[in-house]
Design a protein around this nucleic acid. Structure first.
Lengths: 226, 226
DNA sequence: TATTTCCCTTTGAGTGTTCAAAGTGGAAAA
DNA sequence: TTTTCCACTTTGAACACTCAAAGGGAAATA
């Protein structure tokens, strides 16, 4: 039975390597993300490798083994179902459920999770637009792209806010940049490091760093421009 | 911030000393209840005393300080609100929520607890009939009823011996009729002016006059038969 | 009074997680 | 090629919690 700490490391590794599945995640990144000193990560990663959850290449990084990925999806399933439950049943705002779910994901039993899943009608996506893995560990994976990689005239639907910090979520919400919103790129100002787009009838300009935190499913003609 | 383990010990001490508030709880009892070896309890209790949560009299036992009681009520509030939430919102059976709440009570934030409390209409009692402490730490005394007013199949816990005469107290104690003992009414013999009940695995018959001196907190389904 | 017994306490050690600080490997800079 | 430097690893130690097993106190029994 994986401890809470193990679950947290595995989930973090999954999320760090998510953009390019199978990619090595450096221990430094992990140390920053987990808010511990590098030595702690080295120790922990060796234990995870020992447990068969990751493969570890010293001085290179780690990646999840199939067993690790299975565990990661299991934890994410809990996390995302709980987030949706908090929003739909307990009327929390989607910007504030992340921290709450972070705790609860380690405390709910399989039975309770099953009840929640049932009550919510076996949903496929959480309030941030992230897919909820099935109990069997399958994830619907829409192909998403960060907004900062957009080109003028691209058109699509916001699928997910990758930057989960409460402050950023409030910022995005205030500007209508929420999952499901349709966006059209108006211009990309490379020297100005900003991007201007149309969302819900309003023109918005945001920096590329912020744009990188917003993932969009482009409509076919745009997606073809990869 | 009290750790999960500290919260569990404090809650247990509260419950062990509940029948007679202020009473010393032996470390042996605590070791059995917490399912650890006695040495562990001695170590832990010293730490709790150090933290100002209990007063510890070596070889005698422990009792909660006001700070410890406050923490205990706080934990019980979480536990009981969660139990009620699981029963009312997630349609769990009241017999199966205890273990679930045991985990969740350490994971819910104040904010989430407040939402639950509000959603449930600020209830006073959990599904087992135990009072839910208020956020301020006030507990409603469960309504007590003399044993002579019981009906067959009623089930509850002895809360107080109203008849304080030494002879009666000895009589009651000898038969296991002490605060905290669970009783199940087997039969009520009106013409015979007696009542038969099961206590600590033994069947006991006592006259109605004696029964009147014993106060019981009935469990909900029984309480409904008032 | 002497002995036994039952608890309780002490001691020493282990696990899981963490940090501080010193040591090292290898890529990049000189 | 040599040096520098940063990221990573190692080492030693701490903290919270736990156990096994030996030691001690006080009440019960003889």
């Amino acid at each position: 039975m994986a401890s809470r700490t193990v679950e947290d490391y595995i989930k973090q590794i999954y999320q760090e390597q998510q953009p390019v599945p199978g990619q090595l995640v450096s221990l430094g990144r992990l140390a920053t993300a987990m808010e511990v000193v590098p030595g702690t990560v080295t120790t922990m990663v060796k234990a995870l490798a020992e447990a068969g959850l990751v493969s570890y290449e010293p001085r290179q990084g780690v990646r999840l083994t199939p067993a690790g990925e299975k565990l990661a999806l299991h934890v994410l399933r809990r996390h995302r179902l709980i987030e949706l439950f908090l929003v739909q049943v307990l009327k929390f705002d989607w910007s504030e459920v992340h921290a709450e779910a972070e705790e609860l994901e380690h405390a709910v039993s399989e039975r309770l999770l099953e009840r929640i899943d049932e009550l919510l009608g076996r949903p496929g996506f959480d309030p941030h637009g992230d897919p909820i893995p099935s109990a069997a560990g399958e994830v619907a994976q829409p192909r998403l792209h960060p907004l900062n990689a957009a080109r003028p005239a691209d058109r699509g639907v916001i699928a997910r806010i990758a930057d989960q910090q409460a402050e950023f979520l409030r910022y995005a919400t205030a500007r209508g940049l929420v999952p499901g919103a349709e966006v059209v790129i108006q211009s990309v100002d490379v020297p100005g490091d900003s991007i201007t787009l149309l969302v819900q009838g309003k023109s918005r300009t945001l920096g590329r760093a912020a744009a990188a935190g917003i993932l969009v499913a482009w409509q076919p003609e745009a997606a073809a421009s990869e």
